[in-house]
């Protein structure tokens, strides 16, 4: 996210506090839906500011969100998204990588902690963290699951069905568990904990660099 977009986001966060709870709820649904669109961070924040200001103005006139936007919030969002320039394929890929890297870094961090605990319990060298095939597949499954949940929630912000979301989570968890149990747990390499820490730092640094470029 560019500095300009970050500043606008902070400004929008403050602006939203001027709205009542009900209007804020509607605005949240709108913003979450717009986040799923293939548009830049700065365009997302610009639209968010315009809509927030529109709703604050409406409140001053004693009007509701429905009076200003009309009853169909999804149609309103789709009409807006249709008018905003789309990200290029390169920008889309960069955005996806940027959004995935923090989750990957966090996942590796958690895995290292559990790996060290496991090594200590087993009486093995604590600073060596063996990586198995199932560790990699399990991690990948978790990242895919997290991404699918985010996509599901953002695309369905106006009509999210909790039951469908629970089914999706259960299905992917079941597939990941089956894979973990059925696949051979072969150790493929055993890095030092310092190498793990360096990898996490590199991942977060890469995230920061890409984020500043977008």
């Amino acid at each position: 996210m560019s500095r300009e977009a970050r500043m606008l986001r902070d400004e929008n966060n403050k602006l939203e506090k001027q709205l009542d709870d009900k209007t804020n709820e509607i605005l949240t649904d709108i913003v979450v839906y717009i986040r799923s669109a293939n548009i830049s961070d700065i365009d997302q924040e610009t639209v968010r500011r315009d809509i927030t200001q529109m709703l604050i103005d409406a409140r001053g006139r004693g009007e509701t969100a429905a009076d200003v936007i009309g009853g169909d919030y999804k149609a309103f969002c789709d009409a807006i998204i249709a008018e905003i320039p789309k990200l290029s394929a390169k920008q889309r890929i960069m955005t996806a990588i940027r959004d995935t890297l923090p989750a990957l870094g966090l996942l590796i961090g958690i895995w290292v902690v559990f790996s060290v605990i496991e090594q200590i319990i087993n009486g093995a060298t604590w600073y060596v963290t063996p990586v198995s095939v199932t560790d990699i597949l399990g991690g990948a499954a978790m990242l895919i699951l997290a991404t699918l949940i985010v996509v599901y929630i953002t695309k369905n912000s106006f009509n999210a069905k909790p039951a469908a979301l629970v089914c999706l989570i259960l299905l992917i968890t079941a597939v990941a568990l089956c894979a973990a149990l059925l696949l051979p747990s072969r150790i493929i390499f055993s890095p030092n904990i310092a190498a793990d820490a360096a990898l996490v730092i590199v991942i977060f640094a890469a995230h920061k660099i890409i984020d500043n470029k977008l």
């Binding site: 639209v47 809509i51 529109m54 409406a58 200003v68 309103f76 807006i80 008018e83």
Partner: peptide, 10 residues
């Protein structure tokens, strides 16, 4: 509604 003309203004 203002929301109707906002996409046109964009």
């Amino acid at each position: 509604a203002e929301g109707t003309i906002y996409p046109l203004l964009l």
